[in-house]
């Protein structure tokens, strides 16, 4: 049977809107099942606040299965909280103890302005994908799916990179606010596959340069990999850098051939 945690002290960032300066507020949750997820703790707190006539705490969440990448939260200073390889929605209260004080903040990054309370705007990540995170294959003209065999290790490596859920934890955990792990995951997913070769060099150049418009620079701290709910390896960052360097030469060569 489930056990209950008693008297959790929550210090939560409240901010009315993008222009507000924001502040921490303290709340007490008297009792919660250890089977509850961290977001269900916030649900319980919000019910409590609505009962008292107060504004509920705004936070992003959706699938609660760790796959949509909507949820966020810095929990005690760690992106997605203390459990490795786990998004906030999959973090359960059995990882905490009665009487704990838990500090909850939104993602911390200049590129992610706060919309309200714990909710931030992560749309710069979409801008990076729009710049080149795709294979140009308009609907209708695709050849048979088995026409190009892809060695299993290659497909598996591409899949390892493609698992990224786009939550932005890598950015929030990075002392520089860099989005290299996010960008590298998408670049590597597509650059590893035979179908991605035609745009390999233009893709990496466009995506990295768009990334640089919004985000800080990578200095190989490795915090991103530690915070990633899918444990995506920073090896992909090395792959991206290598491709970017080669692209700078190759793209010029390609242009000179015209």
């Amino acid at each position: 049977m489930s056990n209950h945690l008693q008297n959790l002290n929550l210090k939560i960032w409240r901010q009315d809107g993008p222009a507000d300066s924001g502040r921490f507020e303290s709340y007490l949750v008297g009792s919660i099942s250890d089977e509850a997820s961290f977001l269900e703790l916030l649900d319980v707190l919000n019910e409590q606040l609505i009962g008292e006539g107060q504004d509920a705490i705004a936070f992003d969440h959706d699938c609660r299965e760790g796959i949509c990448g909507t949820c966020s939260l810095m929990i005690d200073g760690q992106a997605h909280g203390p459990q490795r390889g786990t998004a906030t929605c999959q973090l359960h209260m059995r990882k905490f103890a009665s009487g704990d004080t838990i500090v909850v903040e939104p993602w911390r990054a200049t590129a992610f302005p706060i919309l309200k309370d714990l909710m931030v705007d992560r749309s710069p990540l979409d801008r990076i994908v729009e710049a080149g995170g795709f294979i140009t294959a308009a609907t209708g003209g695709a050849p048979d799916a088995n026409i190009i065999p892809i060695p299993k290790p290659v497909a598996d490596a591409a899949m390892d990179a493609a698992e990224c859920i786009g939550c932005g934890a890598c950015v929030a955990a990075c002392p520089n606010g860099a989005a290299n792990l996010f960008t590298a995951a998408k670049v590597s997913h597509l650059n590893l596959l035979p179908q991605g070769q035609a745009e390999r060099w233009s893709r990496v150049e466009a995506m990295v340069e768009t990334m640089d418009e919004y985000f800080g620079s990578c200095t190989n701290h490795g915090e991103c990999e530690a915070a990633c709910p899918k444990s995506i390896s920073i090896d992909f960052i090395a792959m991206m850098h290598k491709d970017f360097r080669r692209a700078k030469v190759k793209n010029r060569t390609l242009i000179s051939q015209i």
């Binding site: 795709f134 294979i135 003209g141 695709a142 048979d144 799916a145 598996d156 591409a158 997913h189 596959l193």
Partner: peptide, 9 residues
């Protein structure tokens, strides 16, 4: 066919 062409692993 379409999804493989788009790079679905």
């Amino acid at each position: 066919d379409q999804m493989v062409a788009q790079g679905v692993p």
